[in-house]
Design a binder for these strands. Structure first.
Length: 139
DNA sequence: GCCAACGTTGGC
DNA sequence: GCCAACGTTGGC
């Protein structure tokens, strides 16, 4: 199973908003970047991802799961854009801040550090395990 | 709110 | 196919 990282501005659609959607989840629409779209195309139902708050918060707050594979983005007629659906799984006991990630040598190669503008990113198995540990939950 | 970094667009 | 101009993102 692959692991991912989804970025969202909490002022627009944060972790609490995703939790409120329950098991139905939410369409991860609005992505207009090829790399991010390609990452979503590569996802399978059941894949897990970190949920990161950008712009404000700047921390990973929980884990979400892919609950529908890539399908056309309902917010545009442009058929280039696709998205998956995601649902909240569980919050971190301790959110893991960007500052923590940037100072941990085990996480130096994370896409979040290397290419902070990519909104849907792959996460390696090692990174996944390290961050779950820092977040105080089981991987 | 600013601005650096990045991706996309479009004229040539 | 290059690259300047532009728009957007996101950390600070």
């Amino acid at each position: 199973m692959a692991h991912w990282l989804f970025k969202s501005e909490p002022d627009v659609f944060g972790w609490d908003d995703l939790v409120a959607k329950g098991d139905a989840g939410e369409e991860w629409d609005g992505v207009r970047n090829y790399q991010a779209r390609n990452n979503m195309r590569a996802m399978a139902v059941g894949d897990l991802g970190f949920y990161y708050h950008s712009r404000s918060g700047l921390e990973i707050v929980g884990i979400c799961a892919v609950c529908a594979e890539a399908h056309p983005d309902s917010t545009t007629d442009d058929d280039r854009w696709e998205c998956v659906d995601v649902k909240a799984v569980k919050p971190f006991a301790t959110p893991v801040s960007l500052e923590t990630i940037k100072t941990d040598p085990r996480l130096a190669e994370m896409v979040l550090v290397k290419n902070s503008r990519l909104s849907v990113q792959p996460v390696t198995e090692t990174e996944w395990a390290v961050i779950c540990d820092l977040g105080g939950i089981k991987a």
